[in-house]
Nucleic acid binder design. Sequence first.
DNA 1: CAAGATAATGAATTTTTGTTCATAATATGA
DNA 2: TCATATTATGAACAAAAATTCATTATCTTG
Lengths: 207, 207
Amino acid sequence: MKKTPHRKERERKRHREEILGAAEEIFADKGFHRTTVEDVAVRAEFSVGTIYNIFTGKEDLYQSLIKQRCQEISDEAHAALDQATNPLFLVEMFIRAKIDIFTKYQAFMKLYTRERMGDRFANNELWRETVAPLYEQIRDRMVEAFAKGIQEGIFDSLADPWELYIALEGITDGFLYDWLIHPEKTSFKDKYAIMLKLFFDGVRKRA
Amino acid sequence: MKKTPHRKERERKRHREEILGAAEEIFADKGFHRTTVEDVAVRAEFSVGTIYNIFTGKEDLYQSLIKQRCQEISDEAHAALDQATNPLFLVEMFIRAKIDIFTKYQAFMKLYTRERMGDRFANNELWRETVAPLYEQIRDRMVEAFAKGIQEGIFDSLADPWELYIALEGITDGFLYDWLIHPEKTSFKDKYAIMLKLFFDGVRKRA
DNA sequence: CAAGATAATGAATTTTTGTTCATAATATGA
DNA sequence: TCATATTATGAACAAAAATTCATTATCTTG
C-alpha cells in the first residue's frame, strides 16, 4: 500500500498500449470523427470508464497516439538516413526507409493519410508542436543533401533543393497511396526500383 | 398560382448556388465534421430552415457540392486534354490544366484535399458512383497515352503506363499541396516548367 | 388590395456521443 | 482473512449539433 509496485506500473503501461493499439485500428478504419470512444473501448476490451482513467478524453487519446507513433517513425527514419554517406545514397535510403516504415506501420499510415491535411490546415498545437518539427527535421536533412548534390554536380541545377524534395515526396506518396488503396494488387516494396528510376532519370527515353 | 414561374425557379437555383458556395468555403476552412449547418446558414445569410428546404440535410449538402464541382472540374479537364495530339503534349496539357483548374477552384481543392482520403477509404456511394468514375476517366486517358508513348519509344519502357501516371499525379500533387499550405510563398503557376522537367528528365544531371 | 400560395425563419426537439461518477470488483499486505 | 487501496465498470448525465415544424413574412394573381 505504500511501496511503488513495479508490476502495477508496467501493467498500466500495457493497458495504455493496448488501448492505443485499438484506437489506431479504429481511427484508421473510420477516421477520427466517425470513431466513438465506445468503439475503441469495445475493440480494446475495456470499458469507456477505463479509457477515461488513462486518457483525459478522446482528443487526448488521439494526440497521444499521433505523438507516440510519429516519434517512433521519426526515430526509425533518422536511423536509416544515418547510414547514407552521400546524396545519391541518401535518396536510396529515404525510399527504402519509407517503404519499410510504412509497411510496418500500415494502420497508422492509413490514419495519418486520412487526417494529415485536416490537421495541417488547422495548424493546431498537435501539428505545430509535435508533427511538424519531426517532419521538418527529415525534410531539412533531405533538402540539405539536395543542395550539396547540386553543388557537387550530381543533380541538375534547374530545380532548387526544396523542389527536389517536393518531387521526391510526391512520387513516393503517390505510390504509397496507390498501395494503401489497393494493398492486395500491388506490393509497395516492389516499387523501390521504379520510384528511384523515375526520380533520378524521369520518364523520357534516353537517346 | 398555377403557371410555372420561371423567375422563381431561377431564384431557387440561385439560392441553391449561394448556399453551396458558402458551404464550400466553410467546409474548406474547417472540414466536414467541424462545420455546423448553422455555420453555413450564417455565411450564406439564410436560416438553417431554408437550407433544409433546399437540401435534405448536411450530408446531402456536402454530396451535392462534391458532385457539382467534380463534374465542372472533369468537364474542364477533358476540354483541355482534347487539345493534345500526342503523348508528350498531353502531359504538358495535363499539368497546365491541373494548374489552371486548381487555381480557379482553390477553395474546393482545399476541401477535396482534406476529405479525399477519408471518402476513398470509406468507399461510400458518393465516392464509388460519382467521384471515382470521373477520376478514372481522366486517369485512363493518361494511362492509354503513356502506353502509346512507350510503344512509340518516347517514354522509357522500364516503367509501366500505370506507374507513369502514379508518378505524374504524385509530382503534381506534391507541388499542389505545397502551394495550398503556403499560398503566399509560392505560385503554383510558376512550377509548371519544373514539374515538367522533373517528370520527363528526373533530377540527375546529364553527362 | 385581398386571398391564397409559397418561402423563410429560428426556437424547440431529437439524436448522437463525449464525459462523469457512484458502485463493484480486484489486488495488496499486515 | 480482513481492512484498505486501487482499478474497472457502465448507466446516467451533459453538451453539441442535426433536424423539425409551427409561425411569420413575402410574393402572386384575380
